[in-house]
Simulated scan of single mutants.
Amino acid sequence: MTREREGAPASWEVFLRPRRGLAHQHVGSVRAGDPHAALLRARDLYTRRGEPLSLWVVRSGDVHAAAPDEHDPYFANAEHKPYRYPHQFAPLTGGGSDGDHDH
């Protein structure tokens, strides 16, 4: 984690939800002293192309992420939840639509 210098503008992560998108996407970062100024900078830098549905800024220090060396605890298979895996279920047999119907 990088520390902000005393008196230096904070770093903010910028997220846009494009008009045709379902979710916000990280598009970059800006430096600003407060959330309002961060939104204005983000608007000026990242909304020139198209008209996004919404714009978010999040102070960089408030974003928490899993580091690559922590991959397994966060993204490993959930072996303790066998219902998530298809091999735990018996295949359906008989009575299905297999295309061999008499007409």
Rank of each mutant, 00 (worst) to 15 (best):
H36F: 04
W12C: 00
S54F: 03
G33Y: 10
H103Y: 09
E4L: 09
A65M: 13
E51S: 13
G94T: 05
G33K: 08
E79T: 13
P52Q: 10
V14I: 04
H71F: 15
F15L: 07
P91W: 05
L45G: 01
P82C: 07
K81C: 07
R20K: 14
G33D: 11
P52A: 10
A8S: 11
H101W: 08
R20P: 04
D69A: 13
H64I: 13
A42E: 01
A78V: 09
P68F: 07
R5C: 05
R20V: 10
S11P: 00
P73K: 07
S11G: 02
V30D: 00
A78N: 09
R31V: 04
V63A: 07
P91F: 07
R84P: 02
N77A: 14
W12A: 00
D72H: 09
G95A: 11
D44I: 02
P82M: 08
R49K: 12
G28E: 03
A32S: 03
R20F: 14
P9H: 04
V63F: 03
H80P: 06
P68E: 10
M1G: 15
K81I: 09
H24L: 05
F15T: 02
A65Y: 14
L45T: 06
P82H: 06
R49T: 12
G61C: 05
D72S: 10
R17G: 03
V14A: 02
D72Q: 12
K81E: 12
V14F: 01
G99K: 04
A66V: 14
T2R: 14
R19Y: 14
M1L: 12
A10T: 06
E51M: 10
E6R: 14
V63M: 05
R31D: 06
R84E: 06
S29V: 06
Q25E: 15
H103T: 04
G99A: 03
E6P: 07
R17M: 13
S60F: 01
A38C: 01
S97V: 12
G95K: 08
G33F: 12
H103W: 08
R17P: 03
D34V: 02
D34C: 07
P35E: 05
